[in-house]
Simulated scan of single mutants.
Amino acid sequence: MRRTYELINAGDIAGFGDLVADDFIEHQGAPGFPATKEGTLDFFRALLGAFPDMSMSVEDLVADGDKTVARVTVAGTHRGSFMGIPPTGASVDMQLIDIMRFDEAGRVCEHWGVADMLSLMQQLGVVPAGAPA
Rank of each mutant, 00 (worst) to 15 (best):
E6L: 05
I8N: 07
G11H: 08
D12V: 02
I13R: 01
I13T: 01
A14F: 01
G15M: 01
G17E: 02
G17A: 15
D18M: 11
L19N: 11
V20G: 09
V20K: 08
A21T: 04
D22G: 10
D22R: 06
D23H: 12
I25A: 13
E26V: 12
H27F: 11
H27C: 14
Q28E: 14
A30K: 07
A30T: 09
A30Y: 04
G32T: 15
G32L: 14
F33C: 04
K37A: 09
E38F: 01
G39D: 08
T40F: 12
D42Y: 01
R45H: 13
R45E: 12
A46H: 15
L47Y: 15
A50S: 13
A50M: 11
F51H: 13
D53I: 05
M54Y: 03
S55H: 14
M56P: 05
E59N: 07
E59T: 09
L61P: 01
L61C: 04
V62P: 00
A63H: 13
A63R: 13
D64M: 10
D64L: 12
D66P: 12
K67V: 14
K67T: 11
T68A: 11
A70I: 04
A70Q: 04
R71P: 03
V72R: 00
V72E: 02
V72I: 13
V74P: 02
A75T: 09
G76P: 05
R79A: 15
R79C: 13
R79K: 13
F82R: 06
F82Y: 15
M83C: 09
M83Y: 09
G84D: 14
I85E: 09
P87E: 09
G89D: 01
S91Q: 12
V92N: 08
M94R: 06
M94F: 15
Q95E: 12
D98M: 08
D98L: 07
M100E: 14
R101A: 14
F102H: 15
F102G: 06
A105I: 06
A105V: 04
G106L: 02
G106H: 07
R107M: 10
R107I: 03
V108Q: 09
E110H: 03
E110C: 06
E110Y: 08
W112I: 04
S119R: 08
M121D: 01
Q123V: 06
V126T: 06
V127R: 01
P128R: 00
P128S: 02
A129F: 00
A129I: 07
A131Q: 15
